[in-house]
Structures are given as structure tokens and as C-alpha cells.
Design a protein around this nucleic acid. Structure first.
Length: 494
RNA sequence: GGCCGGAUAGCUCAAUGGUAGAGCAGUUGACUUUUAAUCAAUUGGUUCCGGGUUCGAGUCCCGGUCCGGCCA
């Protein structure tokens, strides 16, 4: 560098200042974008390498993004963020010579990626720190990080530029790492029960397995329309037909419906099917799974929400019949004998928004459940004996042909997991699907019914909303907070 | 889809219809154990977009975009 750089003139333009620094580095023969570093240690390993009472630890080689720069005259502290967390490094003129003034102090910015090699020591306040013997700039950040204290709080920026949120908001990083560990623990649990993981199509000719509005798309090669799947169910049952008698899939499903704190257009479902058991068997399976996952990931079975409410996931879980809960909440023992009009009137008296008159009778009742009962089910509760119209894929209860052998597991005021004794009578299944489809007979999945006609073993089936489970285990306020890159409308082009 | 709230410097936020400011970041200087380091000086604006009212609009009105909350 022969000319003195004029950063003063452009000091207001942070992008230009950093570009100028990059240009000067390149002019001096250094290109940070062609450099690399041998990362031998992660930040979180370092404290254990320097036991209490030991003055100097082994040499380590760490790398990461500069998240704090405390530059002083001839000695400075630099905090580096890697996949484990933050490690402090110590830069001195004594160790680095002239480069300390001309390179370290002038060319590095927060956000830059650096590699640092040196021995561990403890500062006078006790923080384990790398005494830098050698360092290298291995990527330049041309844009600044958000402000160090207030951080990034703008919800739109947090979602659109999640990478910035991950760099500066430790809680966001933790939440999304918990999510990863939850999925890992679920797989381990199901493998221990001898389940096989499979992958089934996301493009469906008929969107079945649930009642939801699908996204539509088109295949040019096959010249036909497809739907993005709204459930995993029907293909996993085909696996049962094929003899895979314990199968599961963890996959993205898509529902073209409302977006809210609890609903995302794309979300992740676990579905598991086990032959030669029923919904009672699924109760044991889901309770054991959630308890194991929670203990593995959090080290406890007690979850504390941000508002201080604690949820006990250990032990046995409450069971309650759907009809009993309705009768209890409405205070009307004869509720299920009432006409639809009487139920609608009662809903209004209970303070509910007026149910739509085109609703079916069971939908009016389910409005009471969804609005007045489910939000209050904070501790784990298996809601059983649900009206058969709500799930046409389950077996009807022996001795009560108005209900089905299913449960909906509710925790934290949300439905976390439904499970069924799966319907395997092809004749009954056809009738139920015909009732559900009504006039839209083209929505009946004939290929699925053909599979059932070949014989499906008796089985219990289970679905878990992974996002909601992670909300429960992380105390997140919003489903978008447990999804790395949530669905947003495109930003207007500048 | 409806209602309510929000959008101002890189970030976090101020600003009775009357000269758009602060902190942090940046730039310059001092400083060899900091912890939001400190001290001094200093640069920085299409107030989301498009119209309108007004002598004068970040502020009021109309339309739109995006984000959030509640409801459907």
C-alpha cells in the first residue's frame, strides 16, 4: 500500500469502508476469500483443556466469526463465534509485531471470519482465552452485524435474514439446535423399537390422509396436475400392506390455509405405523417417546413455559373422553341429543363466535372443543372416543358406533399428536371416504383402497407435529421461531 | 378475507403540522487483561412506495407493499 487510504471520506458508508479494506488487502497480496484455516478445536472444548489452577493450557486452533472487537493500544480482546459458541482470543503487539497495528487493528471488523492459533490461558477475571500466536483472515464480511447490545429485534429481519439472527441472538441459535436434537432423539427412539424409516412422495395425484386445502402444482413431463402432500398417512399404510409392519417418516407437509402463531403453510410431521397393536399401544409409544426425547434433549421431564407455568411430562398421563369434556364444559348432560340449532345457540351463550350455519352438527361441537377445551389442556391429556366424522381413517369403537378408537394428545393447549386404531376394512374405509368426499368423488384415492383390498394388518398409527413439540420443549412463542426459514411473502424488489 | 398496530441512519429507538435527533456501529486519535471496555473528536437520512391537503407533512387524508397481533 503506497497511498494512505481515505476511509474518512466514506466513513458513513459501512459497505464502502469494508470494500476499501478488502481492496487494500488484495493490493498487498492477501485475498481473504482464497484463504482457509485448519480448525482443530471448537470453542466449547477449550475450558476443559485448562483445568482450574493450571496457568497455561495446550495450543488450540479455532476459527469463527468475530462478534466482538475490543481494541486497545497494544493488546486487544476478540470474541469469536463458532458452531459451539463463543471463545475469547487475545491479540498483542508483542506476539504479532507490526501486523498488530497495520493489519489487525486496521483491517479486521466485526463479522469477519478468522482462524486463530495459540495456547490457552486464563485472564485475570478467569475467562479461558486463546493467546494468539498466529491468525488469518479467511473471509471478509462486507456488511456489518446488527448492533451488539440491542441485537436484532425486528421480526421481519429475523425471519428474512435468519443468518443474522443466528449470529447475534443466542436464544434463537439454541432453539433451532434443540429442534435438531429432538428429531435425532425421535429417530433413535423409533429405531430402538425396530421401526424402519421410509421416504414417500410429496407430489400426490390426490391430497388425502387429512382434511385440508392443498397447494397445487403441475408436472410438465407427465402432463398432469399434482398436489403437495397434506399428510403422510396413505403411503405409509401402503407400506404396511407391503409387509413393513413398523414404519415411520419424518417429512414436510403443506397446507394452503391460514397462517398463525400455531400454523405454518409448511410444517414437519412424524407419522409412525405399527402393526398388531392399536391406539392403546400408540399411547404407550408416544408417551415413552416424548418422555425419552425430553429427557435426552433437556435432561428433565419438567418443562417451564416463558410465563412460568410448568408442564410435567413424566409419569402416567390423564385420559379423558371427548364427550365427557364437552358435557363438562357446556354443563349440558344432554348436549349430544340437542339439535344443531340448539347447539349453535348454546355456543353463542358460551361466548363463542357464531358458528356458521352451513357447518355440520359435529363441527359445531368441535368448535366448543377447539376454542374452549383444547386451549386449557396444558398438562398432557389423551382425549379419546372422538366423533367418527372427525377422522374417517380410524376404526369405529366396538359398542358405540358414534365414536372411533383414537386419541388426540393435547399438551400446552395444543394438539400435539393424534393416533388411531387404523381402519383396515376396505369396505368400511370406502364408505367413510365417500361420506367425506360427498359429491367430489374424484377425491377418493382409489389406489389406496386397492391396496387395502390386498389386506392391511391391524395397526396403530400416530402423527406428531414436530414444530409444536419443539415449541413445547423450547418455550417458543410462535411456530415461526422454531422454523429456520419460515414462509413469507416475497419482499418488494427495490 | 376482516379489524387493529407497525415501517425514520448499518442496528435499537426519539421527534405539538414548523431546521429529522440519540445510543451503538463506522472514521480519526489515545490506551498492554477487556467483558455493552474507556476517553476525545467526527461522518452519516429517497422518514416503505404513490398520490392529496397545507405557506409548510416523518407527522393529517386516500391508495398500495411488507411485517406483527387478534378474529374468520
Amino acid at each position: 500500500m503506497s497511498e494512505k487510504p481515505d476511509l474518512n471520506a466514506i466513513s458513513h458508508d459501512l459497505f464502502a469502508v469494508r470494500n476499501e479494506k478488502l481492496a487494500q488487502l488484495r493490493a498487498a497480496g492477501e485475498d481473504p476469500f482464497r484463504a482457509n484455516w485448519n480448525q482443530t478445536h471448537v470453542s466449547t472444548e477449550c475450558p476443559a483443556l485448562l483445568p482450574e489452577g493450571v496457568e497455561e493450557g495446550p495450543e488450540v486452533s479455532v476459527a469463527g466469526r468475530i462478534v466482538a472487537l475490543r481494541v486497545m493500544g497494544k493488546a486487544s480482546f476478540v470474541k469469536i463465534l463458532d458452531r459451539g459458541g463463543i471463545i475469547q482470543t487475545y491479540f498483542t503487539r508483542d506476539a504479532l509485531g507490526e501486523a498488530y497495528d497495520t493489519h489487525f487493528k486496521k483491517m479486521l471488523d466485526t463479522g469477519d471470519f478468522v482462524g486463530v492459533r495459540g495456547k490457552l490461558f486464563r485472564t485475570k477475571t478467569g475467562e479461558v482465552t486463546v493467546r494468539t500466536a498466529e491468525y488469518r483472515l479467511v473471509s471478509k464480511a462486507l456488511r456489518p452485524l446488527p448492533e451488539k447490545w440491542a441485537g436484532l429485534t425486528d421480526a421481519e429481519k429475523i425471519y428474512r435474514q435468519r443468518y443474522l439472527d443466528l449470529v447475534v441472538n443466542e436464544e434463537s441459535r439454541r432453539r433451532l439446535l434443540v429442534r435438531s436434537r429432538v428429531v435425532e432423539a425421535i429417530r433413535r427412539f423409533l429405531w430402538s423399537r425396530d421401526f424402519t424409516e421410509v421416504e414417500t412422495p410429496a407430489l400426490h395425484a390426490i391430497a388425502g390422509g387429512a382434511a385440508a386445502r392443498p397447494f397445487e402444482t403441475h408436472s410438465n413431463a407427465l402432463d398432469c396436475d399434482f398436489y403437495l402432500r397434506i399428510a403422510l398417512e396413505l403411503h405409509l399404510k401402503r407400506c404396511l400392506v407391503g409387509g413393513l409392519d413398523r414404519v415411520f417418516e419424518i417429512g414436510r407437509v403443506f397446507r394452503n390455509e391460514g397462517v398463525s402463531v400455531k400454523h405454518s403453510p409448511e410444517f414437519t410431521m412424524l407419522e409412525a405405523y405399527q402393526a398388531y397393536t392399536d391406539y392403546r399401544g400408540m399411547m404407550e409409544l408416544v408417551r415413552s417417546m416424548i418422555q425419552k426425547v425430553c429427557a435426552d434433549v433437556l435432561g428433565t421431564t419438567v418443562v417451564t413455559r416463558p410465563d412460568g407455568v410448568t408442564i410435567e411430562l413424566g409419569g402416567e398421563w390423564r385420559e379423558a373422553k371427548y364427550k365427557d369434556l364437552i358435557v363438562e364444559r357446556t354443563g349440558d348432560p344432554q348436549w349430544f341429543a340437542r339439535t344443531k340449532e340448539e347447539k349453535i345457540a348454546a355456543c353463542k351463550a358460551l361466548g363463542l363466535h357464531e358458528p356458521r350455519t352451513d357447518w355440520e352438527d359435529f363441527e359445531v361441537t368441535n368448535e366448543v372443543f377447539g376454542k374452549l377445551i383444547e386451549p386449557g389442556l396444558i398438562q398432557p391429556t389423551f382425549v379419546t372416543h372422538i366423533p367418527k366424522e372427525l377422522c374417517p381413517l380410524a376404526k369405529v369403537t366396538v359398542g358405540d358406533d358414534t365414536t372411533i378408537d383414537v386419541f388426540e394428545l393435547c399438551i400446552n393447549g395444543q394438539e400435539i399428536a393424534p393416533a388411531y386404531s387404523e381402519q383396515n376394512d376396505p369396505g368400511v374405509q370406502r364408505k367413510m371416504l365417500e361420506i367425506q368426499a360427498g359429491a367430489e368423488t374424484q377425491k377418493i384415492d382409489e389406489d389406496f383402497l386397492l391396496a387395502l383390498e390386498h389386506g392391511m394388518p391391524p395397526a396403530g398409527g400416530l402423527g406428531i407435529g414436530i414444530d409444536r413439540l419443539v415449541i413445547l420443549l423450547t418455550g417458543a412463542a410462535n411456530i415461526r421461531d422454531v422454523i429456520l426459514f419460515p414462509t413469507l411473502a416475497p419482499e418488494a424488489q427495490a
